[in-house]
Nucleic acid binder design. Structure first.
Length: 722
DNA sequence: ATCACAATACTTTTT
DNA sequence: GTATTGTGAT
């Protein structure tokens, strides 16, 4: 069988295009990834290029794996997947191989979001910067953006007071990372570029090695990634990039769809191939998508077409609130499965923010409906998992202070705040790293150092240091899984978790799962294992198996397709998100994001919004998404009349309160004037009380503490009988 | 030093 | 609703 058989003429042209830069611009569902994987397979089989000569990079681990799998399917002989990966994974490899040219050792660890934030907070504290005025998150984002533009601390333009602060924090932050022998995500790219730029011989080695380069999701590359490509590609590259500017949704991460234009400028001889035929969606879905994206100014209009026929109308539904929304989703899933003959695994529910998944999950759980959840700290963000990974990281890289502080007293071993601060002070005074102090305490029971600590604290530190030493010695001798067993045993971690609750048992299960994952890395070693954990996105924690609907964010949906797609939360403030309101470029991205969501659907699309929505903890009426106004009415069915403004909502037009779904409402327990008693605030008088959804909010004037607003479910408030 | 409870502060999207 | 911090009791 010819591997080009299932491509059309246009796609075939792209795949067999002669060596030289090629840019494939294609609409959704035009088989971009398919073209890309065929191109890889074609290069390998027809041109006799060894897999190692191909560098194929994309955005997510999942896409990378899929790319590898598909190529493997196409070719009978299996392909080394080491050549397929994400930019970050590729860069991590470069940094590790060339560590001797960089200010880290090969044992460096990758700091995740939480790690970064924790050192950022510490720096702000040390510098006496008010975290209220300069939020650590915001500074971190600015530094991240700078790194993605390849701007290092000394070159950071301090053009105003705030940026001057950022510049100083940036410097310290970078120093701190290196002190920890650590890099953040952005550093992986930055340092890979640095080492290639500054070392001609290294660069040439990579250029010789990777003669063919392929990029997926090209519209989402940032400056660092594009620079990396250009460096390795050289002057006259066999470079093949695939992308769609309409689907650029990572601008906030430094991605710049203008790299598409830069590509054409940098490589004037490049061929551009446009793919407009869509093989995924029905014409109705495509038309709806185009109605949304055509309102996007300054883009090249694409006339997407399909020969799949019009298909079903797009269903729109207005739910009362998010509970009702979740129930509607369940309903739809059930009825489409029953009537439409679809498999539950064919369906996806998409939303703008991860927080929206919770309500869905609860509803699914209640209904006994299994689901697959993509994204959001599902596994690796768990406390117990982070603890164990912290131990491993610390064993692997003794300078990792973030991990050290995380595990030094977890489980509690008598090393409290006081002991820790004198411990860190001791390290600072002696101008050595905390790891060295710990070593000294562990080795020499009579060290003068002990005088600096409370007796018990010093002993506990020494104990901990001894364990660490042992584990380190073992780590090169025994298998990763056994090392984990040993750590868990020595720390009595099971006992620490086991509080008899279901949650404790669940946490222990998670650790066992991590252990079995570690087992798979026995051959590859701890270094690769830790890198894998850092770079993996939770996309990969998606537990396959039985067919169940998938829940995921619109961002996570990129590159995927499902026969049935339900997009929820079509309210202003969510889609588009409130945080984008005052930034025109960000608003455009929201529109593209909605477009991406729409075009994931093959057969049927359902759009849902809520009349009421709980935004922080309080519920209020929501305005329908402004994008709903762009949808042609003749493509829609359902509660179409309610989509214009909140005044037109069915829940408003009818003053029939029975429309509100039945719910368990709490009885008001407190009345105005009632005397009450609070555990802390003492006695007081109820000034006001109102029942909001499932809780009662009581305003009390206390005799000594003044007026407080309390939630009856949380506060320990009692009626004072007399 | 540790725990339990309660008040507070914070929520976009991800490698 | 959830994560983090703060406080008082043991």
């Amino acid at each position: 069988m010819n591997l080009l058989d299932n491509l059309n003429a246009q796609q075939r042209e792209a795949v067999t295009a002669p060596a030289g830069p090629v840019l494939v611009l294609a609409g959704p569902g035009s088989g971009k990834t398919r073209v890309l994987t065929h191109r890889i397979a074609y290069q390998i089989s027809q041109l006799g290029i060894p897999p190692a000569a191909i560098m194929a990079v994309t955005f997510t681990n999942k896409a990378a794996r899929e790319m590898g799998n598909r190529v493997e399917e196409l070719l009978t002989n299996s392909v080394h997947q080491s050549n397929m990966g994400t930019f970050h994974a590729f860069s991590a490899g470069v940094v590790r191989r060339e560590a001797n040219l960089l200010p880290v050792t090969r044992e460096f660890v990758i700091f995740d979001d939480a790690d970064q934030l924790s050192i950022m907070r510490k720096i702000l504290k040390d510098m006496n910067i008010d975290p209220k005025q300069s939020p650590p998150r915001r500074i971190q984002n600015i530094i991240s953006a700078a790194k993605n533009e390849l701007i290092e601390a000394p070159d950071f333009a301090a053009n105003n007071y705030f940026n001057e602060i950022v510049r100083r924090v940036y410097e310290l932050y970078q120093q701190k990372l290196l002190d920890n022998n650590a890099l953040d995500f952005d550093d992986l790219l930055l340092y890979a570029v640095k080492v290639l730029r500054e070392n001609q011989s290294v660069l040439e080695a990579y250029r010789r090695r990777y003669r063919t380069i392929l990029v997926d999701e090209f519209q989402d590359t940032n400056t660092a990634q594009y620079t990396l490509l250009r460096l390795i590609a050289g002057e006259n590259p066999d470079l093949f990039a695939v992308g769609d500017p309409d689907q650029s949704i990572y601008r906030w991460r430094g991605a710049d769809y203008r790299n598409v234009l830069r590509f054409l400028e940098d490589f004037p001889g490049a061929q551009t191939i446009l793919l407009e035929q869509n093989y995924r969606s029905t014409q109705n879905i495509l038309d709806l998508g185009m109605a949304v994206i055509d309102k996007h100014p300054g883009r090249q209009r694409k006339a997407l077409f399909t020969d799949r026929g019009a298909g079903e109308l797009i269903k729109f539904h207005e739910a009362y609130d998010e509970q009702d929304e979740a129930n509607f989703v369940l309903d739809q899933i059930q009825s489409i499965a029953d009537d439409g003959g679809y498999d539950l695994g064919d369906m996806a529910v998409m939303y703008r923010t991860n927080a929206q998944s919770r309500i869905l999950e609860e509803a699914f759980l209640r209904a006994g409906q299994p689901y697959r959840l993509v994204g959001a700290q599902r596994f690796y963000g768990r406390r117990e998992v982070k603890d164990l990974v912290g131990y491993l990281r610390l064993i692997h890289n003794r300078e990792d202070q973030v991990s050290l502080l995380r595990v030094i007293n977890t489980p509690p071993r008598g090393i409290g705040g006081k002991t820790i601060s004198s411990f860190l002070q001791a390290a600072e005074d002696a101008h050595v790293s905390p790891a060295t102090i710990l070593d000294q305490l562990a080795t020499d029971p009579n060290a003068a150092l002990f005088d600096r600590f409370p007796r018990r604290g010093g002993q506990a530190l020494a104990e901990f240091g001894k364990h660490l030493k042992q584990w380190r010695a073992m780590s090169s001798e025994i298998e990763l899984g056994n090392l984990i067993d040993r750590i868990l045993q020595d720390t009595h971690y099971h006992a620490y978790l086991d509080d008899g609750s279901e949650e404790g048992a669940e946490r222990w299960e998670n650790l066992l799962e991590l252990r079995s994952l570690a087992q798979e890395f026995t051959e590859l070693g701890m270094s690769i294992f830790l890198e894998h954990i850092a770079l993996i996105s939770d996309q990969d924690t998606l537990t396959d198996g039985q067919s169940a609907p998938t829940l995921l964010t619109l961002h996570a949906a990129k590159g995927l397709e499902f026969p049935i797609v339900i997009i929820i939360g079509l309210d202003d403030g969510l889609i588009p998100h409130q945080r984008s309101f005052d930034e025109p470029e960000a608003m455009l991205e929201e529109r593209r994001l909605f477009y991406v969501g729409i075009t994931r659907a093959k057969d049927r699309l359902v759009l849902v919004r809520c009349f009421r929505r709980r935004f922080f903890g309080t519920s209020s009426t929501a305005e329908p998404s402004r994008y709903l106004n762009d949808l042609p009415a003749d493509l829609l069915e359902g509660d179409v009349a309610g989509i214009l403004t909140r005044e037109q909502s069915a829940y408003n037009r009818q003053t029939d309160w029975n429309l509100q779904p039945m719910r368990e409402s709490v009885e008001s327990k407190f009345n105005v004037g009632m005397r009450v008693k609070h555990a802390k605030f003492g006695e007081g008088i109820v000034m006001d009380s109102r029942v909001d959804q499932d809780d009662e909010e009581v305003t009390v004037e206390f005799e000594e503490y003044g007026i407080k607003i309390l939630a009856a479910s949380v506060a320990n408030l009692e009626r004072n009988g007399d």
